[in-house]
Design a protein around this nucleic acid. Structure first.
Length: 549
DNA sequence: GCCGTTTTCGGCCCGACTGTTTTCAGTCG
């Protein structure tokens, strides 16, 4: 069991306890421990072996015991007992907007159903609306929510898939009989949602590779184990495929298995079958097609072939181009680390600046900042900035766009800041016209620099709210507003398509982490992948430039 | 269940919004 899997079990315990209506502080204790584990820098096993579990914040004696049990046995007696009381299938319901623990409990108790399908049937049969506190609208919301979930059920976010891919990659790489290997398929192309995890392997001893692979500890089930490939499902639930080829076939296979299908098909139409024989690298392969090398992120048949033929592909955006982050939180609102800790983490990444953008006051749960607290924070930032001559903290805010489009802080307060990110955090259900007007109003505020997570989507949880995208892009271009690619792997908002349209309209993009913890600054890698897939170049990204304001 | 003490119990975020009500419970962030 790795950190993530351990945390997931503890999180399920918290959810089951909450459905059971157990002590809410006990529930929170489990959630705090989960959060700590997610943010650890090192392997839980190492910490355990060195007897340092009690040093993890929020982990006391009881939860320590459970962690040890999970690490040693892969399971937990307490968790199994809870599942006897409350069916674990109820946990799936919690992903449906409008259903949280109490509603899940009520439906389960009153209707005696526990699976997603049964819930869907019940909602369609209009039996949910008769329950206390529920009505026709809630029922409709449940139906819509389940239909959305079914559409993404078999997908995994890149954020979840990449660490799993790395682990399997490292396992395979350690095997002497494997000469070359690479992740392929949608993971290599960097899609925000992937269906499975594909790894290509070159070896002269296929049987040995297959045998070695069967011993991989994180395999749940092997479905196919035959010449050339092994498929199955990992313990995380992610389907995998390992494709094994002879070394001399590796490059061609790399091309084929990376895809996309449309990209390969367009290239291979009208070429002689032996064109690729003996090709030594992907660069050479594309040369044989008489075109520039096309990086994996662009292989979607969206014009990249024509661009490669005319040497007009976008110059690849690299991590080291990023000079700073323009959207992070600290413990002044709902972040976990102090100003100084965030600054030092940014300096460790060789950033030149970091904009501190805590929440504004209306987000009380995140202890949003009042004008007075913002002023105090500014003073502390000034003090800290005296320490460095090669780095600067910028004073900023993630100001809430209120329901009517006005901002949560007065103009004179915003005027005193270096960076103003404006985002929507409430009233997602406004109709299209009202939501559009709301955004237009915010975009027209002269103090706003960046619109944060524009569409509000959460991958695998909910689609974005309704608004007129054309209108918003026009207004953003006209007002010289920057749009954010929020790098959180559950958001990646704006997505690659909107980013590409924005670029074509001359709108600048900021790639931000929205980090709430110092270790989250690195998730900017996902934003960079999205930017590449949106054909963005260094010049399109505002935070690739040295920033002096 | 964790934490931090005026050390072994008492405290541990909360407000807006929604849909259901007719004064409020549950969800969400």
């Amino acid at each position: 069991m790795n950190n993530q899997e351990t945390a997931e079990i503890l999180e399920k315990i918290a959810d089951l306890l909450q459905i059971k209506e157990d002590n809410s502080f006990k529930v929170r204790a489990y959630r705090n421990a989960v959060s700590s584990i997610y943010h650890l820098d090192e392997d839980l096993k190492t910490i355990y072996q060195q007897g340092r579990l009690d040093q993890i914040p929020g982990v006391g004696k009881a939860i320590q015991g459970k962690i040890v049990e999970i690490l040693e046995t892969g399971s937990c007696q307490y968790y199994n007992e809870l599942k006897k009381e409350i069916p674990a299938s109820l946990l799936e319901w919690l992903a449906i907007p409008g259903i949280a623990h109490k509603t899940a409990r009520q439906i389960y108790k009153k209707l005696g159903i526990s699976t997603l399908d049964e819930l869907y049937q019940a909602a369609v049969a209009q039996t949910i609306q008769n329950l206390p506190g529920m009505g026709a609208k809630s029922e409709e919301k449940i139906i819509k929510g389940i239909e959305y979930l079914k559409g993404v059920k078999d997908k995994t976010t890149l954020g979840e898939a990449l660490p799993v891919a790395r682990d399997l990659y490292n396992y395979l790489q350690a095997f002497a009989n494997i000469e070359k290997l690479s992740p392929v398929g949608s993971v290599r192309r960097g899609k925000s949602l992937v269906g499975d995890l594909d790894i290509l392997v070159a070896s002269r001893d296929e049987a040995a590779v297959r045998k070695y692979l069967r011993d991989y500890p994180w395999i749940k089930v092997i479905k196919l184990d035959e010449s050339g490939h092994v498929t199955g499902i990992l313990k995380t639930g992610l389907p995998f495929e390992v494709i094994i080829v002879e070394p001399q076939e590796y490059v061609q296979a790399l091309f084929w298995t990376t895809g996309s299908k449309e990209h390969c098909r367009v290239l291979l139409d009208n070429v002689k079958p032996d064109l690729l024989r003996g090709v030594a690298s992907e660069e050479e392969l594309y040369k044989r097609f008489n075109m520039d090398y096309i990086p994996p992120e662009l292989r979607e048949n969206r014009g990249e072939v024509e661009a490669a033929q005319t040497s007009s592909l976008p110059a690849r955006l690299e991590l080291h181009h990023i000079k700073g982050d323009l959207h992070v939180h600290t413990d002044w609102s709902d972040g976990k680390n102090s100003l100084e800790e965030m600054a030092e983490a940014a300096r460790a990444l060789n950033y030149e600046y970091l904009a501190i953008t805590d929440h504004s006051r209306s987000l009380t749960v995140s202890s949003g900042l009042s004008p007075e607290k913002l002023l105090l924070q500014g003073e502390q930032i000034d003090r800290l900035n005296r320490k460095w001559d090669d780095f600067r903290l910028l004073k900023g805010i993630e100001v809430d766009i209120l329901k009517d489009g006005s901002l949560d802080l007065p103009d004179d307060v915003l005027a005193g800041l270096d960076i103003v990110v404006a985002s929507i955090h409430s009233a997602f259900n406004l109709d299209k016209k009202a939501q559009t007007q709301r955004l237009v109003k915010a975009i027209n505020n002269e103090h706003v620099d960046i619109i944060g997570h524009l569409t509000g989507r959460l991958l695998k949880r909910r689609p974005g709210y309704e608004f007129d995208l054309d209108k918003i892009l026009e207004e953003s271009a006209r007002n010289h507003k920057i749009l954010e690619i929020n790098s959180h792997p559950d958001r990646l908002d704006v997505d690659e398509d909107i980013a590409r349209r924005a670029k074509d309209m001359g709108i600048k993009i900021a790639i931000n982490s929205d980090a709430h913890h110092k270790n989250e600054l690195s998730i900017i890698q996902f934003g960079i992948i999205t930017a590449r897939r949106g054909w963005l170049e260094k010049e399109d990204i505002i935070n690739t430039s040295t920033y002096l304001k």
